[in-house]
Design a protein around this nucleic acid. Sequence first.
DNA 1: CGGTTCGGTCAACGCCCGTACAATGAATCG
DNA 2: CGATTCATTGTACGGGCGTTGACCGAACCG
Lengths: 186, 186
Amino acid sequence: MSAEKPRRTRAEQRRETEDRILAAARATFAELGYERTTIRGVASTAGVNAGLVMHYFGSKEELFSRAAMLPEEELPVGHPAEALLTSLRRRLDDEPVASLVVLRSMLTHAEASGEFRVAAAAWLDRVGAAIPAADAELRAGLISAIINGVVLDRYLLKLSSLADAPADDILALLRPCFESLAGESG
Amino acid sequence: MSAEKPRRTRAEQRRETEDRILAAARATFAELGYERTTIRGVASTAGVNAGLVMHYFGSKEELFSRAAMLPEEELPVGHPAEALLTSLRRRLDDEPVASLVVLRSMLTHAEASGEFRVAAAAWLDRVGAAIPAADAELRAGLISAIINGVVLDRYLLKLSSLADAPADDILALLRPCFESLAGESG
DNA sequence: CGGTTCGGTCAACGCCCGTACAATGAATCG
DNA sequence: CGATTCATTGTACGGGCGTTGACCGAACCG
């Protein structure tokens, strides 16, 4: 008869609610971009009041920052071309949403994404360092452009030829490109 | 001392003002995307009152439609790979703004851009028809993705390695990719 | 010349947004 | 137990937006 422990302690509840808000925010930012995403909308998807979102995250900017935080992407080791193909496969299969939050929102809200520009630059440096060529930097940039372009056409523009294709086919056709750009032959 | 002909007839004046508004709209849509572009902003850039923009174009949607209208892009003839490289060079040099209006706004306002999805599909069909391979459609889609990715990284994300590079270098590095994808060797 | 068209301005509307803040009630703690 | 924290709600405000319609004056036309 003594009072049972409440199924959820306050801390647990808090964490769960915050996670629900973040998940809703990620999905909405990815689908609508920064501008069209509203705090009320995110709150409603998460099943809470809009004021709560503000209370927890302070501002829309901050909510976006938290929602867009990505785990540090580690580059697979090995021949650069193979490593990059693996990296692309991950982005095609594993979690398109994570990529989309950043990509779409960098486009709709460039100022909010200064941090991600930095992350992208770091990624480029690492790739460039693995490419044995004088113009390694440009080659890395082009590989990044291809990856971004594929994600863009497949998930954002949803152009049919790419949206419907199996990831394997895409990777197979792209392999010669990556090898050429990664300077595998030299 | 008879009344001189006014320097500009009403029709001329109208056309010039409309053009000025369209130019301002194109620049603003390309730079800010659909959502962040405001009619007041476009009007102010064009040096007119916001009401006039509404009066001439009816709505923001319609203004966007008119601003984003592109000349039908004709594909250069010849080996598909060379033709596509030429097409990319045009987009890199000639008029980045025109590409950007469509690209950026398709991303920020997908619904407004159904028409351009159609145009993109037609372009893909034409490219696909020129590629002698069973998976021509996918190959065309990948080429389109590469072109979009390069424009994206260079002009929208402004990633340094691509933004600073001469167009010639980009094309030189991309040539093997296009040849491989366009099935030149088969 | 007088009436009409029409390029252009201005002020206002209703809406939705990000945000602020007071209120509430249940979990927590001494 | 009473006091206090804190997750959560509801309400409200100020601002910017797309859009509207009344209005003005100069170009047009018979």
